[in-house]
């Protein structure tokens, strides 16, 4: 299972790449693999706020509809337009081309509530038992 070192994770299988006061957000390899073929994504408009661990986007696979929760609170400043016509990018490249949004981080201290790659890796192993 691919779990890049430089990202932070949630127990709901989202990731955040933190660069200065900005964070890029997506769903993990484990999430895309569990969902199966993703066919639709609903992302909020830019300037909308998001709250840590609250739903901000929706992904639909052939079989299921799932909320995507924000790893950090903030304001959405950019959304991945490519997902509109090619939601399968999330399956193909969950950490690169399949990113959902970029947010302006509201409170950097919230980072302590997130998992590092090694603790997320342990968490996944526990789930798969």
């Amino acid at each position: 299972m691919n779990i890049p070192d430089n990202l932070f994770y949630t127990k709901e299988h989202e990731w955040a790449k933190i660069e200065g006061n900005l964070a890029t957000i997506g769903i993990t390899e484990y999430a895309q693999s569990s969902l199966g073929d993703i066919v639709f994504v609903e992302c909020p408009n830019i300037k909308k706020p998001c709250e840590q661990f609250e739903p901000f986007a929706v992904v639909e696979s052939v079989k299921a509809v799932s909320d995507v929760r924000a790893p950090l609170s903030g304001k959405i400043i950019k959304t991945n337009q490519a997902l509109k016509d090619n939601p399968e990018l999330i399956n193909q490249s969950p950490y690169e081309k399949g990113w959902f949004v970029v947010i302006e981080i509201k409170d950097e201290k919230e980072k302590v509530n997130l998992l590092t790659s090694s603790s997320y890796n342990d968490y996944i192993k526990e789930l798969s038992k």
Binding site: G36, D37, V39, V62, K63, N91
Partner: peptide, 9 residues
């Protein structure tokens, strides 16, 4: 079995 490689494929 729900899927082997992927539903769409």
């Amino acid at each position: 079995p729900i899927q082997y490689t992927g539903i769409i494929a």
